[in-house]
Computed example of a mutant assay.
Amino acid sequence: MTKVKICGLTQETHVAAAVAAGADYLGFVFANSRRFITADAAKKITTRVPAAIHKVGVFVQPTFIDIKHTCDIVGLSHIQLHGTITPSVQQALEKGAFQQLDVSVIQAFNGEALDLKEKLQSSLADFILLDAPADTTAYAGGNGQTFNWHIAAKEHTVSKPLFVAGGLNLTNVQQAITCFTPYAVDISSGVETNGTKDSAKITAFIQKVKELSINETTNE
């Protein structure tokens, strides 16, 4: 069954809506973004989140100390890395420091990178995330843009669980799932209205993915 990550959460009411609808992952952005949230604020709005639902911290070129500090405050189960891997994080990946923290690593990649296959094969992360190019956008993700799914699907040959992000919404998520058969889909701007999370859209998106997963299982 395809899992769902609702990313860019900043308000408790939207966290509650995602939890109630059955989200598997909740994403919190600790980097330059209009969805930025502090570690203390993220802790406050997730105090009622069941332990079975994963809390993901989204970072852009952080140091290992930055990550550890945030994990200690929020109680993250996963971190999501965008941009160039910094030396301290690379060292932590190589030495198993994240396993010691009991934190899994999701590494984000430009789904249209010419050397995508090589980058994916060299990644030390536990999960792979494919997203739209961010070179000409203000932020590393959550820009509401898709990428060439069919080309990226051919390049994605590694066996690690795959998250698909970038411009997902109710109308195209079925196509994305068909194209990638991903471990999870990751949405942010697609469940917003006028730049703010929308509880009704969060619920509808999660229900749509669950329905697609049930139909797929039934047809097998």
Rank of each mutant, 00 (worst) to 15 (best):
T84M: 05
T84Q: 10
I85W: 03
I85A: 04
I85D: 03
P87H: 02
S88D: 07
S88I: 01
V89G: 10
Q90R: 00
Q90G: 02
Q90H: 00
Q91H: 15
L93N: 08
L93K: 09
E94R: 10
E94S: 11
K95Q: 14
G96T: 02
G96S: 02
A97Y: 15
A97W: 15
A97G: 13
A97E: 15
F98W: 00
F98N: 01
F98T: 02
F98C: 01
Q99Y: 04
Q100D: 14
Q100H: 13
Q100F: 12
L101W: 09
D102W: 06
D102M: 13
D102A: 15
D102T: 13
D102S: 14
V103D: 07
V103Q: 09
S104Q: 15
S104Y: 13
S104H: 14
V105R: 12
I106S: 05
I106G: 06
I106D: 05
A108F: 03
A108Y: 02
N110M: 07
N110E: 02
E112H: 09
E112S: 12
E112Q: 14
E112P: 11
A113H: 11
L114C: 08
L114I: 12
L114H: 10
D115K: 03
D115F: 02
L116W: 12
K117R: 11
K117G: 01
K117E: 14
E118L: 02
E118T: 13
K119V: 06
K119N: 15
L120F: 05
L120S: 01
Q121G: 14
Q121I: 08
S122G: 00
L124G: 04
L124P: 04
L124R: 15
D126T: 03
F127P: 11
F127K: 11
L129Q: 13
L130P: 11
L130W: 11
D131G: 05
D131K: 03
D131R: 01
A132D: 08
A132G: 12
A132W: 01
P133C: 10
P133D: 07
P133S: 10
A134M: 10
A134I: 08
A134N: 13
D135K: 14
D135P: 04
T136M: 10
T136L: 11
T136W: 03
T137P: 07
T137W: 05
T137F: 06
T137L: 12
A138V: 04
A138C: 03
Y139L: 01
A140H: 06
A140K: 11
G141F: 14
G142M: 05
N143P: 14
N143E: 13
N143S: 12
N143F: 09
G144C: 14
G144W: 12
